[in-house]
Design a protein around this nucleic acid. Sequence first.
DNA 1: ATTACTGTACCGTCTGGACGGTATTGTCAA
DNA 2: TTGACAATACCGTCCAGACGGTACAGTAAT
Lengths: 182, 182
Amino acid sequence: MAPPGRPSSRDKIVAAAVELSKEVGPGHVSLDAVAQRAGVSKGGLLYNFPTKQKLLEAIVAHHIEEFETAFQRKIDNNADKTDGVISACVELFEKKHKNKMPPASGFLAALIENPDLMHPARVFNRRLVDMIRANASNEAAALVVFLAIEGLRCLPLLDLDVLTKEERDLAVQELHNMVSRG
Amino acid sequence: MAPPGRPSSRDKIVAAAVELSKEVGPGHVSLDAVAQRAGVSKGGLLYNFPTKQKLLEAIVAHHIEEFETAFQRKIDNNADKTDGVISACVELFEKKHKNKMPPASGFLAALIENPDLMHPARVFNRRLVDMIRANASNEAAALVVFLAIEGLRCLPLLDLDVLTKEERDLAVQELHNMVSRG
DNA sequence: ATTACTGTACCGTCTGGACGGTATTGTCAA
DNA sequence: TTGACAATACCGTCCAGACGGTACAGTAAT
């Protein structure tokens, strides 16, 4: 792959693309701009990602890996416990929200270019739902919690978030109650 | 405005743009294609909407009006009743889902072009949240229900929906329970 | 010699939008 | 009644710029 010490050019390029998607809007991510932002020549960019589609695939994979890593850490502790998976989801969102992690804006850039690029994310999401249902004490309630978290994550992505911090905290608290009540 | 008998050119153009956004993807909605689909020349399109931004503004307004109309009809019956607003939201989603109404794909085309175009939708959403809270018996639960509905609406928009019909029905049923339990 | 680029010069395509025309209808003075 | 003009609602063409992608010569490190 790459010398794991410093960030590889690939990583810098992916990071630059995600930043740009947030800054100039997901519809205006040009290869020239990405290369400039990443401190790489356009030739260099196309050396690493021969087409724009390959770059966008890498962005989607990056977001998924990021989430999966954090998720695996959370779930190792309470994998088999009743409602362990959905609890982990709530806690994970709470943590990301406290750390003011930005939304996964790279997804939109990929979606725009070609909806098929979302396929890996769909597969991941489906697996997540299966895991949630598998050890949920109340499947219906667990699904609602899952959907609410998705709402909390999607609304900012679509620039549609209107909740105050207090409202978000209130909702997250209620999600906690729902999963601990079982 | 226009003779209210036949659909005006403006309406045809907006409808064509929404359809195209769904068919070719929100990032590939060109004025030429919209004009062709609407049965109008490009000059005619530009006559009705002097810039692409104006067209996208009209699309956003169209989606909002559509939702608002249906919402007002629902809410007239149980406006002041406890949990009346959030109940109306659940029922409205259920109805749209049963009728297999497509997601508001025009939003994405607007978001891509210019995130500011989502502002009217944000204003509407904020008003909706205020109304929900105003007559909710349990604000936290009502917020969770609101977020779950948004999740149900946003996931298909992002091509991320992975739920089976049964799972969706189960979740909607649970939402009903949550609001009627108060 | 190979790897991993840099830098520059292009090419073809697509797209938003400007522009000049045109058909129809309405208005209104002579 | 009619001729002059104007507003409305388009049509069809053209163009400048942006963008994805190619090609290729050079270079510095391993």
